[in-house]
Computed example of a mutant assay.
Amino acid sequence: MWFFINISDLIQITSITISSLISIISIIIAVKSLRVTKKSIEDANKPYIACYIDMVEVGHFKKYFIIKNFGRTPATIIDLKFDQLIEGLGRNGKIDSLKGTILAPNQKAITAIKVDEKRKFSVTITYKDMQNNIVTNTYHLNSGFSSDLMYTDSNMSNLSDDTNAIRNMLHQYTKRNL
């Protein structure tokens, strides 16, 4: 029977077959593209909670332990675990009050850490996003990172103590934005 098909019919059958294959391939590519786009949007909008130690030096040094949501959506802190007791952190080395706390985008929780604390330690933070996905990250911190940094302030004798203090604060503010 195939032997009796004329060339015109064969061309039409071939065209239909090729068109169908191209359509199926296009649909597959579109579905994959939509999945990748959906994942990219989810990744771009998920919370990202991290912790770090920072210092403020305005007239004197102060160190702070900071947990911040760098992401674009809220997250709930489920658990905070330290690999050792850091007595100079928070109240008696504990910040358990943050468990169950929701951190909005760019929101942070800050607690003092003693300036003379110089240990290295690890913090494991477990949190969940708005879709109830649970994320666990461990951060290795060095609380002595600023122990050999030098602090200087400028005191001009022809200016009052208050003016010198304001000048030094402005200098430190400017320095933070370098």
Results as ranks from 00 to 15, higher is better:
Met1Ala: 06
Trp2Gln: 07
Trp2Cys: 04
Ile5Cys: 08
Ile5Phe: 13
Asn6Gly: 14
Ile7Gln: 10
Ile7Thr: 10
Ser8Val: 11
Leu10Asp: 08
Ile11Met: 11
Ile11Asn: 08
Ile13Lys: 07
Ser15Ala: 13
Ile18Arg: 03
Ser20Cys: 05
Ile25Leu: 13
Ser26Ile: 00
Ser26Thr: 05
Ser26Val: 00
Ile27Cys: 06
Ile27Trp: 08
Ala30Tyr: 12
Val31Thr: 03
Val31Glu: 01
Val31Phe: 02
Ser33Cys: 05
Ile41Phe: 14
Glu42Phe: 07
Glu42Gln: 07
Ala44Trp: 08
Ala50Arg: 05
Met55Val: 03
Phe61Cys: 04
Tyr64His: 13
Phe65Thr: 03
Ile66Met: 06
Ile67Thr: 04
Gly71Glu: 00
Arg72Leu: 15
Pro74Cys: 04
Thr76Gln: 06
Leu80Ser: 00
Leu89Tyr: 11
Arg91Phe: 15
Asn92Arg: 13
Lys94Met: 07
Asp96Phe: 04
Asp96Cys: 04
Asp96Glu: 12
Thr101His: 11
Asn106Asp: 14
Asn106Glu: 15
Gln107Thr: 05
Lys108Ser: 14
Ala109Leu: 00
Thr111Val: 14
Ala112Asp: 07
Asp116Ala: 13
Arg119Asp: 13
Phe121Ser: 01
Tyr127Leu: 01
Tyr127Ala: 02
Tyr127Phe: 04
Lys128Asp: 02
Met130Asn: 07
Gln131Met: 04
Asn132Pro: 01
Ile134His: 01
Val135Asn: 06
Val135Thr: 15
Thr136Lys: 02
Thr136Val: 00
Thr138Pro: 02
His140Glu: 07
Gly144Gln: 05
Phe145Met: 11
Phe145Asp: 06
Ser146Glu: 09
Tyr151Met: 10
Thr152Asn: 10
Ser154Gly: 11
Ser154Gln: 15
Asn155Ile: 14
Asn155Trp: 11
Leu159Arg: 09
Asp162Ser: 06
Thr163Asp: 07
Asn164Val: 04
Asn164Leu: 04
Arg176Val: 01
Leu178Ser: 07
